[in-house]
């Protein structure tokens, strides 16, 4: 596998605040690589250093094997960037925005107009091409920003939270397009704080938190780490008396199972083997609980992420 991005010991500090703390990773040609982490983890800062918008405090960046730590300009022509906030020209039309972006990469008028029309079509924006960017909806803006990054057909795409803040239909469409672009050969580096996005879209994922990469692996391997963990959620009718003792009581009764209370009406069982649920349910019933449902939970990247970083996922998606 050819390494297309290599980052060694990369560090960024802003007047003493360390935003990115000596990270290492490699991205292989043709993969979708995800940077997953909560707000302030250092995702945008890393992208900015990789694309030439932030100076590198320490460490090295290699793109296509070339050391570009000090001279990223020489490779900017092969990279396309979708920043965390849309940054096209509000007063230009969608079509003119795309053409202008193409021109910045030296594309000739005929080529950039043809490409702009193709992209507007690909993103379902044909009818909006003549309208000003400022009149676009959020989803349309996000799509056009992605289209702008594709004008010069870059080999590497950097997407900073490509689907944040837009509706489900647009999210699905954008994800589909990212997969298609990747299939056609583009290497994709994307950041997200949606675990589900990383899981669905990425071949490999790095968990980043407070400037540090905690683990990097393929999605399958990250999931495998939790394969031997089985989760069952048992939902019961909420009761008025105190249930905080319930997990401990259950654990004493069923030592192989550890229990946590998710809310006043749900308890989560975690065990190494597939747990035998019937005795647990019977026990709960005998204790006066009205059990509504018992559900086997398929381990997702979420569990792997929580295990690796100790960050509760609910906090991240807020």
């Amino acid at each position: 596998m050819e390494t297309i991005i290599e980052v060694k010991n990369l560090k960024k500090s802003y007047n003493g605040l360390i935003a990115v703390n000596r990270i290492h990773f490699r991205v292989y040609r043709g993969e979708i690589f995800g940077f997953l982490g909560p707000n302030g983890a250092g995702k945008t800062t890393t992208i900015n250093m990789l694309t030439g918008l932030a100076r590198i405090t320490e460490g090295q960046i290699f793109l296509k094997g070339k050391d570009v730590t000090r001279n990223i300009k020489s490779v900017q022509k092969i990279i396309g960037v979708v920043p965390d906030e849309n940054n096209l020209y509000e007063e230009l039309s969608g079509f003119d925005n795309l053409c202008f972006c193409g021109a910045l990469y030296g594309m000739r008028k005929k080529d950039r107009e043809k490409r702009a029309r193709e992209l507007l079509n690909l993103f379902g924006l044909d009818n909006a091409g003549r309208r000003k960017f400022s009149e676009y909806s959020k989803g349309m803006k996000r799509k056009l920003t992605l289209a702008a990054a594709l004008m010069h057909e870059p080999e590497i795409l950097f997407l900073d939270e490509p689907t944040t803040g837009i509706d489900v239909a647009s999210v699905r469409q954008i994800r589909k397009l990212i997969r298609e672009l990747n299939r056609k050969g583009a290497t994709v580096f994307l950041t997200t704080h949606y675990i589900e996005e990383a899981e669905r879209l990425c071949h490999r994922v790095a968990f980043i938190d407070r400037g540090k990469i905690i683990t990097t692996d393929t999605v399958e391997k990250l999931l495998d780490a939790n394969r031997d963990t089985h989760l069952v959620d048992i939902r019961f009718k909420p009761v008025s008396n105190d249930v905080s003792q319930l997990p401990e009581k259950l654990h004493r009764r069923f030592p192989d199972i550890s229990c946590t209370l998710k809310d006043s009406g749900t308890i989560r069982l975690t065990s190494r083997q597939v747990p035998d649920i019937a005795p647990v349910v019977n026990y709960l019933a005998s204790e006066g609980f009205f059990v509504l449902e018992a559900r086997l939970i398929k381990p997702t990247l979420e569990e792997a992420f929580v295990k690796a970083t100790g960050i509760e996922v609910d906090l991240m998606n807020k």
Partner: peptide, 14 residues
Amino acid sequence: KSRSFERLLLAPLK
């Protein structure tokens, strides 16, 4: 301020 200037900085231009 509107960050469109970043477009220019990201382009392979001196």
